[in-house]
């Protein structure tokens, strides 16, 4: 297996995520442009122009190239599972120079910048195991401005789902223009504290415009989109009709005494790219 070639593939994956937005996000932004006017329209226009320029010049669309975050589904029959973590880490270091990426990993005690986007626990990789011999990697570089608006609510079960909805809307009002709206909001409901946050983040991986397969949850997503957009916060918090491009919910069963709600916020730069590595080492980036 040519590991150097796979590493180059992972660099291409990161580059694609940093320089090209998925089509579903662009469609949602183009729809926003049709309904906005005045200052709100200037913001969506600048975003769309920026997306075009980044793709054309192969430059990161945002200077905050994020914390390098990956979701990896590993086929149990892939022959070199033991090499994957090292390959991703080495690819991040090389991508930092080649693309380039902003050095974004800082030691929380000394304040020292590690300068290559790696460090303790970073790149942050979530591993899952699947049948078969392919490896599926999603690159999901996550910016700090939107991440800072994350929230965990350990609600009282008595408030019910209406309490969950109110909590989400209130938090988005508090966040206002800070997470670079129009945003995508991921909500994890249930589980424990950590699982709710994780589900919120994972909910962001779903394409914009795609509803939850459970009809009841899908309706709650639609209700939340409407309520958050009715706040009038608008693009960049400067006022307008589009505050969120989408709201995605994922759930887990909860403890009878707990109602955890994890909110993960993604800026309009909802950067995602996918890669498949086959068992013979060949790969594709999409």
């Amino acid at each position: 297996m040519n590991f150097e070639d796979i590493k180059n593939g992972i660099i291409q994956l990161i580059k694609k995520a940093e320089t090209e937005l998925p089509r579903d996000v662009i469609i949602a932004l183009e729809n926003a442009l049709k309904i906005e006017k005045g200052v709100a329209k200037t913001q969506i226009e600048a975003i769309l122009e920026n997306i075009k320029l980044a793709k054309k010049t192969k430059r990161p669309m945002c200077q905050d190239t994020g914390i390098q975050t990956f979701f990896v589904d590993v086929g149990l029959d892939f022959p070199h599972i033991e090499k994957l973590k090292e390959l991703i880490t080495e690819a991040v270091k090389k991508a930092t120079i080649e693309i380039p990426l902003r050095p974004n990993t800082v030691d929380p005690f000394t304040g020292e910048n590690h300068k290559d986007n790696t460090g303790d626990q970073v790149p942050y990789i979530t591993w899952d195991f699947v049948d078969g011999s392919n490896v599926y990697i999603t690159a999901f570089p996550k910016g700090g401005g939107s991440e800072n608006m994350s929230k965990l609510g350990m609600l009282k079960p008595g408030v019910g789902i209406n309490g969950v909805k109110d909590f989400v809307v209130e938090e988005m009002i508090k966040a206002s223009g800070n997470p670079c709206p129009p945003t995508v909001v991921g909500i994890g409901i249930g589980g424990g504290a950590d699982l709710a946050m994780k589900l919120g983040k994972k909910a962001l991986l779903r394409p914009v415009g795609e509803r939850h397969k459970d009809k009841v949850i899908a309706e709650i997503e639609e209700e939340l989109i409407k309520r958050i957009n009715e706040t009038g916060i608008g693009p960049m918090g400067l006022g307008g009709k589009t505050t969120v491009l989408d709201v995605h919910i994922e759930k887990a069963h909860r403890h009878p005494a707990s109602l955890p709600v994890g909110i993960a916020v993604q800026c309009w730069a909802d950067r995602r790219a996918h890669m498949i590595i086959h068992s013979d080492g060949s790969w594709e980036v999409k």
């Binding site: 200037t42 122009e49 920026n50 980044a54 010049t57 669309m61 945002c62 670079c180």
Partner: peptide
């Protein structure tokens, strides 16, 4: 406009 890094 936040995130419009290439444009800036």
């Amino acid at each position: 406009t936040g995130g419009a890094g290439a444009l800036a």
